[in-house]
């Protein structure tokens, strides 16, 4: 579904990604972990061109994204949802409007259809009575569940999660991870940058360990935690587990 070939990214001459080649299949749940500064968020943000790669190729459904015109990139982004660390809900809009804005503006649904979809999504994320509230009145966990609902409203084929629980108070992490697990069980293709090792072990079909701008090691969850190969991963796991 997504193929990345020799992806490199520099920020003002400093290399952040040093050549990543990776393939993500439909239905896979790929979890990316690694120390801060390893480039994992940058890698994720390159997948929907939130960051422009310096070189390399990104293939999505037969299209090479770095060669697309802006208009076509917008079309690709409609099919790739993204969930941010800081939620980025639209504070001037009600929850219902947050969810329905994009599908209505992009003429994928009428306002009525989108409203119905929003209702259904709000039930799915467990917040059916919040439709007319504003984001400021929600807790962090609720905000992130709404952000996931907003991404789902576009019927994406894959969702990219950029540290979705890192800005949450500890007691709210569980509700967001539970929702993500539910999405995974429903068969959604997911790429997740996270520090939640429990989630990685339980939900991932594959875990990537990134360090120094490369994918240093990857494995299935059971082997990843029990039989780490590189010294870097052994050190990392001994610190976080």
């Amino acid at each position: 579904m997504i193929s990345v070939k020799d992806l490199k990214k520099e920020f003002h001459g400093t290399p952040v990604l040093r050549g990543i080649t990776e393939h993500i299949e439909k239905g896979e749940k790929v979890v990316i972990i690694g120390p801060s500064g390893s480039g994992k968020s940058t890698f994720l943000r390159c997948l929907n061109l939130m960051e422009r790669p310096t070189s390399g190729e990104i293939w999505f459904d037969g299209q090479e994204l770095t060669k697309l015109r802006d208009r076509d990139i917008n079309h690709v982004r409609q099919r790739m949802g993204m969930v941010f660390q800081h939620f980025n809900l639209f504070p001037h809009l009600t929850i219902r409007k947050n969810i329905t804005l994009a599908p209505v503006k992009l003429r994928l649904m009428s306002q009525e259809e989108a409203d119905k979809k929003a209702e259904e999504l709000l039930r799915r994320v467990g917040l059916p009575d919040k439709a007319e509230d504003y984001p400021a009145s929600l807790s962090g966990g609720q905000k992130q569940r709404i952000a996931i609902a907003r991404a789902l409203a576009m019927n994406p084929e894959v969702i990219l999660f950029d540290e979705p629980t890192s800005a949450l108070d500890p007691e709210m992490v569980g509700e967001v991870l539970a929702l993500m697990k539910q999405l995974a069980d429903d068969g959604m293709t997911m790429v997740v940058v996270t520090h939640e090792m429990g989630f990685a072990r339980e939900v991932a079909s594959r875990i990537l360990f990134m360090a120094d701008g490369v994918v240093m090691e990857q494995n299935t969850p059971d082997k990843f935690f029990t039989q780490p190969e590189s010294q870097r991963l052994k050190d990392f796991l001994s610190k976080v587990l």
Binding site: N48, M50, N74, H75, V76, R77, Q78, R79, M80, G81, M82, F84, N88, L89, F90, L101, A102, K105, L106, R150, A151, M154
Partner: peptide
């Protein structure tokens, strides 16, 4: 970013 990520 949120707006652009939705395809707007």
């Amino acid at each position: 970013e949120a707006g652009r990520s939705l395809g707007l």
